[in-house]
Computed example of a mutant assay.
Amino acid sequence: MRRKLFVGTSIVITLIMIAGIFLSLPYYVSKPGMAKELAPIIQVENGEVGKGSFMLTTVRMGRANIYSYIEAKLFNYVELYPVEEILHETETQDEYNARQLHMMAGSKLNAIEVAYKKAGYPVKYEYKGVYVVQIVPDMPAEGKLLPGDRIIKVDEEKFASSETFIEYVGRKKSGDQLKLTIMRNEKTKTVIVPVKPFKEDPNKVGIGITLVDDKEVIVSPKVMVKTDEIGGPSAGLMFSLEIYDQLMDEDFTKGYKIAGTGTIDSEGTVGPIGGIDQKIVAADKAGAEIFFAPNEKGSKDSNYNLAVKTAREINSKIKIVPVDVIDDAINYLKKLQMK
């Protein structure tokens, strides 16, 4: 009897433990990720790699289960976020993943443009279409298009950008049909999608998608940026610095391990990101000596100020450097003494 009771109890406990792993809670949990060297990820044709290294920093983000929820309550720099703070209204996990990957793609394009222009090289773009990032519920695209689809033609005509696509659709009348040529899983197919007024703006028609440009940057010498499944736009600044460093004869790393974070636009402006404290922890564990942090024009609640606070809390010796534009980082590196 005791043996049966013991076996039965063990089975129940095991099932509870398994349920704790697979049962999702209405939260996302984030924690320090990694600091990864960029030289193996970014390769400029005939580019020079410095004695030191530039590193991107990441945050690990995922749906919370019972164990990660408890971890967030017990440990510093592990944060919980309600689902609605991460996912847009009605957005699915697949749509969120697609949005993150396309933001990374846009970040890479901006980084290449900024770095090449700073190094004195011309930059051109070739537009290939638009990527579908999200589907609006109860709109015509639902059930016909999927996040990640690439629209390459509308009514048999190519278009130059997402703006021209939106303008073309906006000129249609309710009930008109669009013939969309799309790429999905490397296969071309055609779908017919009617246009319909938006509930929030009945005077405006559309098919119910959010989208981003699919374009290729054309530069010489060529550059390859391999990001695999890394998502989000926060590596933009560090991408730019690594590309710029490989394009120039001078070694801007000066033998140091240099980490950092921040979005970058096509003009070289550095924007704030989330999880800066967790990225400082990741950079410190990786042995980074310098960290570039978005300054947000000296805002009291800037990424830079939080980074300084976090470095102090974990007794890190990382030098935190504030940047508003890429020139702030480049000028700092120019003055840095060789290690």
Score class of each variant (00 low, 15 high):
91 E>Q: 15
258 I>S: 02
262 G>K: 04
83 V>P: 00
230 I>Y: 12
100 Q>R: 12
160 A>I: 12
134 Q>P: 00
92 T>Y: 03
170 G>P: 04
125 Y>E: 05
225 V>A: 03
186 E>P: 05
279 K>F: 08
96 Y>I: 01
334 K>E: 05
238 M>N: 11
165 F>P: 02
227 T>I: 15
277 D>V: 07
139 M>D: 05
238 M>F: 07
235 A>E: 08
322 P>C: 14
55 M>H: 11
232 G>T: 06
150 R>A: 14
180 L>Q: 02
73 K>F: 07
160 A>H: 11
59 V>A: 03
40 P>W: 01
273 I>C: 05
70 I>M: 14
288 A>M: 12
41 I>Q: 03
270 V>R: 07
137 P>E: 10
60 R>D: 13
218 I>G: 03
327 D>N: 15
193 V>F: 06
247 L>Q: 08
295 N>M: 03
129 G>Y: 07
309 K>C: 01
166 I>P: 00
96 Y>N: 10
132 V>K: 00
266 S>N: 10
6 F>H: 09
283 A>T: 10
221 P>R: 08
28 Y>M: 12
201 D>A: 12
29 V>G: 06
320 I>T: 10
337 Q>A: 05
249 D>V: 01
122 P>S: 07
298 G>D: 14
195 V>L: 04
270 V>E: 01
106 G>I: 05
22 F>N: 02
297 K>E: 15
201 D>G: 00
337 Q>W: 00
23 L>I: 13
280 I>T: 06
38 L>N: 00
266 S>A: 14
282 A>T: 09
13 I>Y: 10
289 E>L: 12
